[in-house]
Nucleic acid binder design. Sequence first.
DNA 1: GCCTCATCGA
Length: 599
Amino acid sequence: MALLIAIEDSHLLFHRRFSSNLQTLDSIKDCIFQICKGFFYYCKHSTTNLMDTRICRDNKLFAYAFNDLIATIGSKYQPKVDDWPPPVKGSKGRNDPEVAFNMLDCILKRSLERLKLMRGTMAWAHKVGQYNSIMKADYSQHVNTIRNLSLEGKLGVALWLLNKMIHADGVIPDVVTHNHLINGFCKVGEIEKAEWLIRQMTYQGPSPNCATYNTLMKGYCAFIDIEKAWDLLSTMGDNGDNKVKPNIVTFNIIVHAMCKEGKFYDEARVLLLRLTDEDSEKNLVSSTILMDHYFKNGNTKLALRLWGEICKRSKELDVVAYNALVHGCYLSLDVLLMYKYVIEMLKIGLAPDIFTYNTLISGLCKVKMIDDACYLFYIVMSKMGVYPDVISYSILIQGLCKVGNVVKAHELLNCMLERSMIPKPLIWNTIIHGYGKIGDKQSAFHVRDQMITYGVSPNVFTYNALIRMLAKTGEIYEARMLMKEMLVSGPLPDTVSYNLLIGAESEYGHLYSAHQVYEDMLKRGFHPDVVTYTQLIKGYCIKGKVSEAEGIFLTLLGSKLVIDHVPFQILIKQHFKMRNFDSAYGIYEMWERMESQGE
DNA sequence: GCCTCATCGA
């Protein structure tokens, strides 16, 4: 326990120093070292079998990981490291140093990645500080600036700088810089600008390369259609002197787009399989696309078989492939299998990332294992140096609401807001709905007001959640007022809003009002559905007006709507209540006839 | 070097 706290402390210290921007490189290295050391001791001395591993082959990897660590951190710590005791022989994996080091490696890699990112950010901030003297900056600085601006989506400035370089300085940036800009435009859907830039490239250089066309192709798939991407495939580089040959990435883009659209042409499958056979090492991506496609279409068996093949032929698997696999297990709600593969990742030294954790947490929430989900969210993620993002919070909030713990969900929402994460209306609505379900009207409206304060506009789902709550508590006047508010200032109600209000009016015997709402609905061009009619039928039945109810029922039968068992059930019940057994049987027969027709 | 695969969802 003390060790765990020590790890946590050094970890926290690391992040505090990290975020203060005042730290020296050595102090960061020291922190990383302390965290790794702490983690190693934890794995080694832990009495529980953390990884459930039975592998304890030899100490080579141990030494390798060590050297790796030292090489990265610096020789300064060599003597300290030498003091560490050797791994226990014959420990049968209980405190497996290999596993410990794979995990340690994960943490280290991640920390170093962050360090790199921070350095980049600091360098960039430095550049901005000298913005006034940018005119004096040399070619490589300009080019770096264009790349950074493109990555940040500041495309206007990036394009300005590119044009300035070409026209004022008389130098033409290289193809990679151009590609960065094209990528920026394609990501936000400004395809014409990307096309224009490529035309300019073919005209004045540098010649577009395969990555240029691949980028444009992805833009076509995302914002236009696959056909356009196919066209590009056949005309790639036709304008220039040298025709550009498509590569594996090109095909992956197209195949992926087809999978996403739900189309999977035979030719694509054949193409992909052929590519996968030809160069197995490079085509982990292709296989991942294919496996993901199988999983998403419910073909779990085929997907798992493919995974087996991937494992056999790929020397190195990546996090994305595992994430697709874990998501596949998520789709079949197999939590145990999800855990199994995540542990496998750790064993081979792949650090689960935010995608992995979000998928895991989501799966746990879906099967209502909310405590496990919280444990991952609060304890494991921060220990592994992966921090929850908007999606992690959203998943857990929805999970908590699902099991009725709306108070904790609201607390979590407040945590998000403190961290300047403003979730989409969906999350606010989930909490409002949660409060509505337990009848906490005050809190529901409080959250509604809170969302407005944070600049998130309530949508039709927000209003529906509130109307549902008011209908349940019988506060029909307030529900009507909300409907009025929607009609006056938006968002416009939908069929569900009308159904909720009609249902409430019917439930409390306000048949006239219910009918008025129904008329209003028709007048404004909203389409009633089977629920609308069922609510009206129910209203008439409650009042004992069965013939009027049957009138509505006939209207329902005359419509082209697909009818479920509910209106039949209501009418049969009512007839029984009034001892009209023949009529009840008549309706029952009608229902049976309809059921058999449906088959 | 730049371009390919993965997460939540009323």
